[in-house]
């Protein structure tokens, strides 16, 4: 009697299963070739940006995160209109979570503003590093204002992945489409989360709040292209707990700038070798 082939969970097998199953969730919509006539009008580029919302695994993660933010806002007695406005105007998950939980726990507006300002510092270098990908010699600053507003972790990561597949003169329209699509998904999630809030068990709420650090860590890790990026991520994680012991109030700024600079220094030193 022939032996049945043993089914072992090898790394290769696991990878192939994961690959096969993620396709179900990712619904790949391949972008047209760079020289395709499908890029001819900005309106179509906007539509391609909108469609790309379905091609990123970060969309379901955002959906769940904003479901959680909607529920959190309900529990802290903010109105539904207020949460929707906060998603459209702030468009940064951690800032919204910090704002809702600090104001909800009775902190002053000034304390909340300081906490949010410090967490938002990351947006500055993100904007500086993404915008050169969208700019053409003819681009005026005001053309970039809306695209800049949409930049947060998700768009930062997805711009590095998708923009090289988009003709340069259509990248702003594409980013507008992607941004509008992602914000819309999150507004729907907010509304659902807000109305479900009373029925959400605490276990579920905790799981949703874990999504932010998990997704941030993994999407940033996937975005690492050079040694400097990897080192910055590792050093940034390691330095923050040490810097918090100093209680400076701007711990994230101090640990971030020093970890990033050390990582860049190592990168320069390696290039010279």
């Amino acid at each position: 009697m022939a032996d049945l082939p043993a089914v072992r969970l090898t790394r290769v097998a696991l990878t192939s299963v994961m690959r096969a199953t993620t396709h179900i969730f990712r619904l790949p919509v391949p972008l047209p070739a760079l020289d395709s006539p499908k890029w001819q009008s900005p309106v179509r580029a906007f539509a391609w940006g909108l469609r790309s919302v379905a091609s990123t695994v970060l969309t379901p993660v955002l959906f769940a995160t904003y479901l959680g933010i909607g529920a959190l806002a309900h529990d802290t007695h903010f109105s539904l209109g207020w949460v929707l406005a906060s998603t459209a105007l702030i468009w940064a998950g951690p800032a919204q979570i910090i704002l809702i939980s600090t104001v909800g726990s009775g902190a002053t507006v000034l304390q909340a503003a300081v906490a949010v300002t410090v967490s938002a510092i990351r947006l500055f270098p993100m904007v500086v590093s993404v915008l050169p990908m969208m700019r053409t010699p003819k681009t005026k600053r005001r053309h970039l204002v809306l695209a800049t507003h949409f930049i947060a972790v998700t768009l930062w990561v997805e711009c590095f992945r998708l923009l090289p597949q988009v003709p340069r003169e259509r990248r702003i329209a594409f980013t507008h489409g992607l941004g509008v699509g992602l914000v819309s998904v999150c507004l729907v999630a907010n509304t659902i989360g807000y109305s479900l809030a009373a029925n959400l068990p605490q276990l579920f709420a905790a799981a949703i709040l874990l999504l932010t650090p998990l997704a941030f860590l993994l999407s940033t890790a996937r975005n690492c292209r050079q040694l400097a990026d990897i080192l910055a991520l590792v050093l940034g994680l390691a330095l923050f707990p040490l810097v918090t012991m100093l209680h400076t109030g701007v711990d994230i700024l101090i640990s971030g700038v020093s970890a990033g600079t050390i990582a860049y220094g190592v990168h320069r030193w390696r290039e010279r070798e």
């Binding site: 270098p125 590093s129 400097a228 590792v234 940034g236 994680l237 330095l239 923050f240 640990s255 700038v257």
Partner: peptide, 10 residues
């Protein structure tokens, strides 16, 4: 980009 990544890590 390294600083953005490190702040995000924070």
């Amino acid at each position: 980009r390294a600083v953005a990544t490190a702040i995000l890590a924070g």
